[in-house]
Amino acid sequence: MNATESKNAFSYEDTLSFENAIGFENKYLYEQDPAFSPEMNRKKAIEVKDLNLWYGGNQALKKIYLDIPKNKIFSLIGPSGCGKSTFLRTMNRMNDMISNCRIEGKVCVDGENIYGKGIDVTGLRKRVGMVFQKANPFPMSIYENIAYGPKIHGVSKKEIPGIVEESLRCAALWDEVKDRLKEPALSLSGGQQQRLCIARTLAVKPEVILFDEPCSALDPISTGKIEELMAELKKDYTIVIVTHNMHQAARISDCAAFFLSGELIETGKTAQIFENPQDKRTEGYITGRFG
C-alpha cells in the first residue's frame, strides 16, 4: 500500500478491506497519516484506542483498538466471558458502577475521549443509550417509563407527550399501547417490554444505542420485530449489539468484531467475517467448532 492509494480509500468499506489486508496493528500506524484521518473521523461514531480493563487483578480486555462507523449496525460476537459485554459497557461507562473495575486507554465518542478529565458521565449516557439483555421497564406506567428520561434531563412538560408518542412510534409499539398508556409497563409481554425499553432509550435522543443481547430472552417472533426495528433505527442512530446468536449477527449487522478471552481477534464487514474469516480462531467459532 502506498500513500496515493490510501488517499483514495475514503469509504469505510474500503478502509475495512484495507485493514484486513494489512493486519490490524499496522492500520493504526497508518492512520497517523494526516491525509487519511479527517475523512475517517467524520464517519466514526466511536473510536477505541489501546483499551485495557481489569476486574481486580484479572484483565478482562486487552489492548482493544476498534472503530465503530456511524449509522451502521456493529455486532460484537464471541463465546461467553470473552469480554464483549464488558467492552460494550465501556462505551457508556456503565462499568463505573463496578467498584473494582479499572480502565486504561481511550474511548472517543464523536472524537471526545469519554475517559478524559471533566467528562459529564450523565451527559455521555444521554448520548450513548443502552438496551439490556433482560427487558427492564420501571415499575411505572407505560407513559411514565418513556417520560422518565426526558423529565430528568429537564425537558419542559409541554413537550413530553409528543416525545412519548414519537418514541413509541419509532419503537413500533405505539399502535399496540396507545389506548393503555396509563397501564403498568409490567403488564406488557416480554417482547413489548423490550420494545418499550428501546422507546425509553430513544426518548432521550441518543446518538448511539448499545444493545446487550436484546433478544436472548425473546421468542422468534418478538426477535424478528426487534431486528426489523434495529434495521429501521440505523438510519438515524449508530447501533452496537452484543449477540450470542450468530445467525442474528449475520442477518442484521453491517460490521462485526470477534472477541476471544478479552482480545479483539478480528473485525471487518459482516459478510467477510462470516464468509472469509482471516483468523483461524474466528473461523473455528463461526463454523461452530468451539464456543
Binding site: 458502577m97 449516557r125 422518565y148 434531563h153 425509553r200
Partner: peptide
C-alpha cells in the same frame, strides 16, 4: 436492573 436502566438513561 432498575438501577442500571435509570443510570443508563443518564440519571
Amino acid at each position: 436492573e432498575y438501577r442500571e436502566a435509570s443510570r443508563a438513561l443518564g440519571a
